[in-house]
Write a protein that binds this DNA or RNA. Structure first.
Lengths: 220, 220
DNA sequence: TGACGAACCGGACCGAGGTCCGTTTAAAGT
DNA sequence: ACTTTAAACGGACCTCGGTCCGGTTCGTCA
């Protein structure tokens, strides 16, 4: 456990919370017209079917359009681009994770000391990446936007807050980005698929990394 | 300086060095036929011109082919794909950096203690990324290959070796990937361009990160 | 020098992402 | 019910990365 920090039963500091909230409540679906909503659902379902059958690589914008009996332009109007469509597919489990660490039970949610929450957070992200790896890889935006997309910012924002509690006088934004880098789907793919590392090693690596970054001792 | 570590005047451990060497001596240009070599040079020069004039986004495979008065197929035959061409453009400065940390003067090259070399390494990479940022971004391969490409592996391999000297009983491969994540061009772009962070903050962040990861004290 | 084969060349071709714009339609107001 | 209008629709169209294959050229060996 951490050395000089009292346990933190407080949910979060209210001063920093708005940052997260405004990112959480993305104005994703302002209120779609009836036909638009119907087509959106059709498209998502068709895309999910294609993923299940041919993998993420099989999700061609035109294929999705055809499978949903919808014009190609409609797909782009609704989701912006291919990345947007794939991220929409990931949205559900993404929201679940968010809820878990924003308001779920400890140690992931509020109530546990920050370092413990950090450990749980990494573990949760690593396990979510284990399934969905191909989809998360395919949903990765072009490099220039990898860090600016809302879900990514929400996650790193959360890590930043936890770090601020754990190591108040560090440059927590930079440290948070470093920690998030460890959870990059592309890295996880490389380590697990190409280097054949077992999941447990990645999780142990995360625990160790958190300890080093926060300058605390390893648990147990 | 580091606490319990003796200074390391030895260049590198010879046992691990082959790993780096085999990566360094990539069989890039086995010995091209005369016309092929000529076209290769033409293409690189044309590509560089296009970068200078329109930025990396202007480097279209066909545009390069036309500017070099060469068939489109030739571009692909020589460089494989767009990423290959852009990486070839970066190759020169990339090789320079390699030479600097493999056999250059300390603290970057052999002769300085590993933690000091790590600090110098990050600084060098950050500064090289500062120029060439657009090019390095554009040269980024698709996510699934970001970590498997030779230059990346050479860099992370070097960091791994340094870490093995600094923190022998850690999982240095994972720690090295973490450190490399901090030096990701996409992250640097996000932090400097979108978050407006000054270069100095990134460099200070690196120094601090190295200290935390190696569990040493900050210098000075 | 002449002939042979491997390497190279080039541009037609294909697939996929993304844009455009004329047409259709859902919903709100009269 | 009728008009209106902003939003949604759809598919032709464009660009660009990547492939393919028939024709050409370099280097070698006799």
């Amino acid at each position: 456990m951490s050395a000089s920090l009292p346990p933190f039963p407080t949910p979060q500091e209210p001063t920093d919370e708005p940052v997260l909230l405004e990112l959480t409540s993305g104005a994703d679906e302002p209120c779609l017209r009836a036909d638009a909503a119907r087509n959106r659902a059709r498209l998502l379902e068709a895309a999910a079917r294609l993923v299940a059958e041919y993998g993420a690589a099989g999700v061609t914008m035109e294929a999705v359009a055809v499978a949903a009996s919808v014009g190609k332009g409609t797909v782009f109007r609704r989701f912006g681009d291919r990345t947007g469509l794939l991220m929409a597919l990931l949205d559900h489990s993404s929201k679940q994770l968010q809820a878990a660490f924003l308001s779920g039970p400890p140690p992931l949610g509020p109530g546990a000391p920050p370092v413990e929450r950090l450990r749980a957070f990494g573990q949760a992200v690593l396990r979510q990446a284990a399934d969905q790896l191909d989809l998360q890889l395919a949903a990765q935006p072009e490099p220039a936007r990898r860090f600016s997309n809302p879900p990514q910012r929400l996650l790193s924002g959360h890590v930043t807050l936890l770090l601020r509690q754990a190591v108040p006088d560090a440059d927590c934004v930079l440290l948070a980005q470093t920690l998030m880098g460890y959870l990059d789907p592309a890295l996880i793919h490389y380590l697990t698929k190409e280097c054949k590392m077992p999941q447990e090693r990645l999780e142990a690596g995360w625990i160790d990394l958190v300890a080093r970054v926060t300058r605390t001792e390893l648990p147990q």
